[in-house]
Amino acid sequence: MNMPITAQSLVNNVSQLYSLPHFYSRLNEAIHDPFSELQDLANILSDDAVICARILKLANSAMYSFPSKIDTISRAITIIGTKQLGDLVLATGVIELFRNVPKEAVDMDSFWRHSIATGICARVISTYQREDNVERFYLMGLLHDIGRLIMFIQIPEQINEHIQFCKKNNILLHIQEKQGFGFDHSDVGQLLLKSWNIPQSIEETVGNQHHPQACTKFSKEASVIHFSDVVANALQLGSSGESFVPPLNEQAWLSLKLKSSQIPSIIDHIEKQYDDVIEIFLS
């Protein structure tokens, strides 16, 4: 007898395979430890050569456009900021975590391209809004479709059927998911992030990305991610399975308090950073 698929069962099945490296929690603890100093963080980072190299490359990338070259990890931390470092490390770590997903299940390159584009867009917008931790927004964008990835891994046939059905019938994928499974990728994503114990703001934002107003505590964040998802789909920078550009929620757009005249410069910023960041994360 087949058990019905639930969002929780999907997450439970992968929780062993895709758990967050201990490294991340160690770094996070250090970041929030009132005694830890910059050098302590640098020491922890140095334990993982791959992540270390990525962070260094990022600090020197168009994402920061820092005026001079940064050649040590402790210098990179001063550029990125300590609070921001944790989110950035998590972002690199997650991509690393799913590096060995079989190619037949999902086009990982395209998936991450869409996620990174959404993250960059969210980061650019939050820079405009002078948020203190813009990496948090990058991370939210990067993780917004992580639930879809779990679905690709666990139930590849079903999800691909839905994608084909959506293409034929002009339906948004997340609506079709809800129709077919009773839940959509944002529910799966939220549960996965919850099992990883990562900050509530990220988890709730991912869970409410398709209806930002429903999220009372983080509706600003959810609105940014919703808008960024629309932009990334519109620019066709990669795809996480969605074939159409989702309609922009008017409430969400108004809450961003952006002028439409700012959109060209936002897109300009995204394009400037996109190639650099793709190169660093996906190489």
Binding site: Y64, S65, F66, P67, S68, R75, T78, I79, G81, K83, Q84, T127, R130, E131, D132, N133, V134
Partner: peptide, 25 residues
């Protein structure tokens, strides 16, 4: 002149940059 000032303006957080004296920041 080296652009660090402008960079700091764009960031809404503490920015740590090098001093010509290597013992200071």
């Amino acid at each position: 002149e080296n652009g660090e000032f402008a960079w700091a303006v764009s960031q809404n957080r503490t920015v740590i940059v090098d001093h010509s004296d290597p013992d200071k920041v």
